Amino acid sequence: MEINKYIDHTLLKATATNNEIIALCNEAKKYNFYAVCVNGCFVEFAKQQLKNTDVKIAAVIGFPLGAISTKAKVFEASNCIENGANEIDMVLNIGKLLEVNYEYVEKEIKLIKEAIGRNLLKVILETCYLSKEQIEIACRLAVNAGADFVKTSTGFGTNGATFKDVEIMKNAVNGKAQIKASGGIKDVQTANKYIEMGVTRLGTSAGVLLVTKGISDKNQY
């Protein structure tokens, strides 16, 4: 198992600079990560850094709260694709989900998916704020709306990915969407466990550590 191809190498902090994005992209090229995950203002710049490589660009929208208007999210997603993003990681409107306005949540996801066409859409649930039932409902809404992935977390909530939440998500999507675990994935054992559970993408800022530690562990045997 090549863990590098599961990794969305991530830099989403408010203080990120061009130099840090250059370092992120250089690491992604060196270790052949699947993608880098960046804020929208860095998409075009990252595209330049990753020219002539296979590394994809994932852009976050409605991040990290998910509470901007649907129209703004649709524009943001379209703009990121125009600037070179291959994938969109959107935060669903958590408040609307909690107040049981499921029509709003599903319609928003659907409109964003329509706006980005064949490009992949990952829906961030922010599971730390949701009950088991709410996670299941959010997954079904995402699937109904045509999303390609459901994703655990922004990394900015009260907690990140958990094995329990991923298991709930896996059962809820029932093979109709892929799963991305993100938030707090800092060691090889945890990463491998998620992959064994069926996760197909890992969002982490510790991608280099995961890959180099994995190589080190192999060399001990």
Rank of each mutant, 00 (worst) to 15 (best):
A191N: 00
G155S: 04
G66C: 08
K47S: 13
E108R: 14
A72H: 05
L125K: 11
L209Q: 10
L111G: 03
F42R: 02
A72Q: 05
V38Y: 07
T204E: 01
V38C: 04
N159V: 09
G95P: 06
I3Y: 00
N19V: 11
I21R: 00
K71P: 00
F33S: 07
N32L: 13
A59G: 01
K71V: 12
T10K: 05
T200W: 09
A16V: 15
A138Y: 11
K180E: 08
N101F: 03
A59W: 02
T53W: 00
I168V: 15
T127G: 03
I215A: 14
Y31Q: 10
V123N: 02
G198L: 11
N101K: 09
F45C: 02
S205N: 05
A35Q: 10
T162F: 13
V211A: 07
A147E: 00
V188C: 05
K13W: 01
N39W: 05
G214N: 15
A16G: 02
A85P: 12
N192M: 10
F45S: 02
V91A: 06
N192G: 02
V55R: 10
I81D: 04
I22W: 02
N83Q: 13
N4S: 14
K96G: 08
E103H: 08
F75W: 11
Y34N: 13
D187M: 07
S182M: 08
N52L: 06
I179N: 09
E99F: 04
Y34A: 14
V150T: 06
C128H: 08
G117W: 08
S153F: 08
T53I: 04
V143D: 02
I137N: 00
K164Q: 15
I116P: 10
V123G: 03
S205L: 11
M90V: 04
N159G: 08
I112N: 05
G157E: 10
G203W: 10
N174Q: 11
E136L: 02
Q220T: 15
N79D: 14
E136D: 05
K151E: 09
C25M: 09
V208W: 01
I112M: 07
G214F: 07
N174K: 14
T212V: 15
I22Y: 04
Y129F: 15
I68P: 01
